Computed example of a mutant assay.
Amino acid sequence: MENKKKEIKVLYIIHGCQMGGATISFLNMITELVKYGIKPIIVGPNTYKGNTGKEFFKRIEQLNIEYHGIFIPMQIWPITLNWEQRILWPINILKLVIKILIGTKQLEYTIKTTNPDIVHTNTGVVSIGNTVAKKYNIPHVWHLREYQDKDFNWKIFPSKKIFIKKLQTDNYVITITKDILRYFHLDKNSNCKCIYNGILSTDDAKEPISKEKYFACASQIQENKGHEDVIRAFAEFYKTHKDYRLKILGFGDKHFIYKMKKLSLQLNCSEAIDWLGYKNNVKDYIRKARALIVASWFEGFGRMTAEACMLGCIPIGRNTAGTKEIIDYTGGLRFSTVGELISRMNEVVEMQEREYNNIAKCIQQRAVNAFSIEQNAIEIYKLYYNIYKNPSF
């Protein structure tokens, strides 16, 4: 690359403003890329509920980034879990098609008025960026942050086969794990590569501190994140470790949270579980935790696993998908069953402080090399630069 950084105008398409993993990773990415001369323009939903997008819009306002609100349809088949949804299925399909048409037209107008060098779609479930970029002969980067079916039980519209064909044709694809790259049959395509999410700055990777007597669990609170297994394991662990607590951080489905609180009452451990909700200072909780438990069934990347590694907290993660890939690389403890999770919790509390810190430091160093915000931005800027210099490379 040339020493002088070329300003490259990139139009980013996001599917939501809720401060979940994909949004946080996106904000980390563009915050660092601005330093490389990237001029970001964000296209996202034209509405958001209540305070859902408050933190997101505060961040982009601080960065002085232009935002355009349009229809952003997620191209997945409508859910049919009950009789009402099944009756409304034809209507919901029609609504989806209309939203795609409207969103496409709105995106066309935005692209014509902003004239970007590159279009970058921040998720796999939005396809209008690919359609419009192809029409106007603009290079398109598709950032796959999820399996879609394995992790969220979504069915790709109109089909997975068509989606994969789109990915393999006239696109530059970034996946957040090597497993997602393989899952969509992209590992042999030279225009497709894995770039791990940027989780924290290298400055955040400080010396591991003395741990307090609690386990942390930080994610959206919903069934596929595995909270039930965590509570069942903690209930058994708590029988012999009354001085330990479980701190659950994150927002989620109210009905599911009620169900989990009821389960903790039935298992006689509710008094030792703290439901803390969404926290801006989640790093402080993880840094002090004896371990972070990541129980998601199929995590696309598992940013909290990587974050724990960088903060000097040993992760205990389910032996699947992105969580497995991270722990395979950095080190940590894995489990497949509730029984194994209980064993890993006992294992980590029985470690002497010196042993714990030695393991945590080794994990931390590997994580910094792979998952820092700085490293993520370097890799993505290299991709942009190569595309800008030679769109057909």
Score class of each variant (00 low, 15 high):
M1K: 15
E2S: 15
E2A: 13
K4V: 12
V10T: 12
I13H: 10
I14P: 07
A22C: 09
L27Q: 12
L27M: 13
L27V: 13
L33P: 12
P45F: 02
K49G: 11
G50W: 00
K58M: 00
R59D: 08
R59A: 05
E61V: 00
E66Q: 13
Y67A: 04
W77C: 09
Q85P: 05
L88Y: 13
W89Y: 15
I91N: 05
L94N: 05
V97D: 08
K105Q: 10
N115Q: 14
D117G: 01
N122A: 06
S127D: 12
S127P: 00
I128K: 01
N130G: 06
N137D: 14
I138F: 02
H143Q: 13
E146W: 02
E146D: 09
K150R: 12
K160R: 12
K161Y: 03
F163Q: 02
T169H: 11
N171E: 15
K178E: 15
R182I: 02
G198T: 09
G198R: 08
K206E: 02
P208Y: 06
I209K: 09
A218C: 14
N224S: 05
V230L: 03
V230I: 06
I231S: 04
F234P: 06
I248Y: 01
G252L: 09
D253M: 04
K254Y: 12
K254D: 15
K261H: 03
L265R: 11
Q266D: 14
W275T: 07
L276E: 14
N280A: 14
N281D: 15
V282G: 03
D284A: 11
R287Y: 07
K288T: 06
R290H: 15
A295S: 13
E299G: 01
G302L: 05
M310G: 10
P315D: 09
N319I: 08
A321Q: 06
G322R: 07
F335P: 11
G339A: 13
G339K: 15
M345C: 10
E347Y: 15
V349G: 11
V349N: 13
M351G: 05
I359V: 12
C362I: 11
I363M: 00
R366K: 15
S372E: 01
I373A: 01
N376W: 03
I380R: 14
P391Y: 05
